[in-house]
Design a protein around this nucleic acid. Sequence first.
DNA 1: ACAACTGTACCGGCTGGACGGTAAAAATCG
DNA 2: CGATTTTTACCGTCCAGCCGGTACAGTTGT
Lengths: 195, 195
Amino acid sequence: MKDEKSPISTRENLLRAAIRVVQQGSVSSLTLDAVAREAGVSKGGLLYHFPSKDALIKGLVAQFIAEWNRAMDWEFERDPTPELPGRWLRAYIRSCFANYDAEEYATLGLTQGDVAGFLVAISSDTGLLADVYKEYEIWDEKCLNDGIDPAVATVIRLAADGLYFSEAFHLAPPTGEAKRKVMESLLALAKPSGQ
Amino acid sequence: MKDEKSPISTRENLLRAAIRVVQQGSVSSLTLDAVAREAGVSKGGLLYHFPSKDALIKGLVAQFIAEWNRAMDWEFERDPTPELPGRWLRAYIRSCFANYDAEEYATLGLTQGDVAGFLVAISSDTGLLADVYKEYEIWDEKCLNDGIDPAVATVIRLAADGLYFSEAFHLAPPTGEAKRKVMESLLALAKPSGQ
DNA sequence: ACAACTGTACCGGCTGGACGGTAAAAATCG
DNA sequence: CGATTTTTACCGTCCAGCCGGTACAGTTGT
């Protein structure tokens, strides 16, 4: 009731609009004018909430990290075999393989793959992804201390990421039944019996 | 003896210069002026060989594909266990894990990871990566028809790609001994006994 | 043999548009 | 009213692509 017109509303609206712009175009089409137009505000209005383009991108990155962590926590909680080692890896796998479109997690109403496409494209530019790097190191450490052989754990993480990127960049990603079997193969690896 | 001043020389020089610009800066620093300056030619000279920026990027993409295919062929030929199924997958793995810096393959004198960073950043822009998409489908088909269980083969491909991206985007890539063990785990998977 | 012509390779200044950012006025709200 | 939020108008920069040249190597005509 109080988020209807709260000061956050416009801000979030702008973030959603920014994502939409990237989705319906390319990364290079992410301009202040385009985002403002998409959000239905003026450019000045956009710059009031995000004083610079970098600030806008940082907002997107922060939202992305938060969303992904939420998704992984959720998967972690509902793991069917919580007693087995590799629980966190399994949550990681499921998070990468799931496409949360407009569901409970999709705070921004987007597919994770789309966000990745955006983020990575930005990455090469400036140090805007520094937060993502840090987050990744945390995830990596969790992977390595999950009761699974570290090498196998890294294989799993890389494969899950690989799927993510293959979807984001259309690099022959598996779909349908094949995708399901790939995920199951990975989940099998993420259990002590898996190697 | 006749390639000293051949008309190809300038063209290749420009491509090398373009890569250098991206490496020593960011993707966004890839401007026509910068490439021309780096190559020691004028902007007009650059535009003579590549009539547009897109054409220049397409040239880079083509070079990249050719180089990677050459690397994979080379690994394929020197596979230590050519009699076992999964030979092509093993070549794929080794290509992704190797860093050919200024060796036989490095026609452009760059690390594969660098190229990936560049390519992907460009990718979201236009249909400039259409050729890469097609190439990937070919690779995918080779992966699936390599005598290994398709799901496992896809896991391997995704993991190899994942390593590639993790290096390109600094997403906690394994290094040193850990990296070697990861590769060995993958190579083990790429053999009948591996699953 | 040499002049006129043609095509190739390259130069460098220019421009028009896009884009990030600013600032002050205007509207809205408490 | 005063603070917050939003708009309108504008500036400066950067950059892709264009265009009028230059130099020079062949080629052709006579």
